[in-house]
Design a protein around this nucleic acid. Sequence first.
DNA 1: TCTATTATGGATATCAAGTATCTACAATGT
DNA 2: ACATTGTAGATACTTGATATCCATAATAGA
Lengths: 160, 160
Amino acid sequence: MQFSKSTDYALHALIHLTLSEKDGHIGIKELAHTLGVSVSYLSKIMSKLRQDGIVRAVPGVNGGYELARPADEITFLEVIQVIEGREQLFECSNLHSQQHQLLSEEMAEVHLPKHRGSECLVKKVMDGAEEQLHQYLRQHTIQAVVDQALNRQHGFTSKK
Amino acid sequence: MQFSKSTDYALHALIHLTLSEKDGHIGIKELAHTLGVSVSYLSKIMSKLRQDGIVRAVPGVNGGYELARPADEITFLEVIQVIEGREQLFECSNLHSQQHQLLSEEMAEVHLPKHRGSECLVKKVMDGAEEQLHQYLRQHTIQAVVDQALNRQHGFTSKK
DNA sequence: TCTATTATGGATATCAAGTATCTACAATGT
DNA sequence: ACATTGTAGATACTTGATATCCATAATAGA
């Protein structure tokens, strides 16, 4: 259970775009070189971000990428979901086992027939965990990380 | 990014053991049949749980598995970490890239040389997310789920 | 002690996903 | 037109999850 490297590249790429906003479009070459990853691979990742409306791509001479929206409206959760997909963290594979029924439908069936389709209690706990995670990731934006980096730099220079 | 099926089986197996505590040892055959999974596969999972001191195994006639500790001392987090491993959810693969340095060491190097080895800000956010997840999973025990299942059953019967 | 029962650990096979690259194609500005 | 730059498809490689089989070790009961 780990986030893929693609997610890592996507997040760092967006931070680079934010920091370079004033410079206009950033080419995939520069981006790939900065992150230390091949152009071909990063292209796939940037395509996903584009398809989801997080960045804009401009082909042609002096083309490249730029943010499609302000960095403070781009949350970690959104980026992660674009790259990792939106499947649930946990799927109960015991749907037809005795065990699963014990924890949900069987009891409902015997005592309260209308209550079919109720969820496995294990899954309920895991869904709660996922919601917890999402809440946190929704609260953190690309802009927040950039601000932190700049403040840090500022803090250091002013101390000298 | 998803929890493996093994985790699902492990959690359900532990719940079955908890519910059957009074019946003494539970054989791997019964366990596997209840969960709807092969004996050979479930064996590997139970072995891990045994090696980590979550269950006890007794070989020989009338042998089988039982909980090594009270179910209210077995947290979801523990079970998940045994099965999934204890690697961090997020690893920054940009350790030697310009981007990474921008977010951590480069600034520190220029302005405050002693501050080497400071972490990437992206990773800090992700580590925070992981801690959030762990906090939640630590608060939920196998016993809690079993209690919920039994209360539900009780609630239904008393209503009739 | 012998035997049936049961868990253990190693070897292995299969499959899906992540990682990574190359190439032909399309769009854009000069 | 033409050089530049992103897009999309095909493909190869690696890794991890899933799953099974078999030989081995340990135990209880006759």
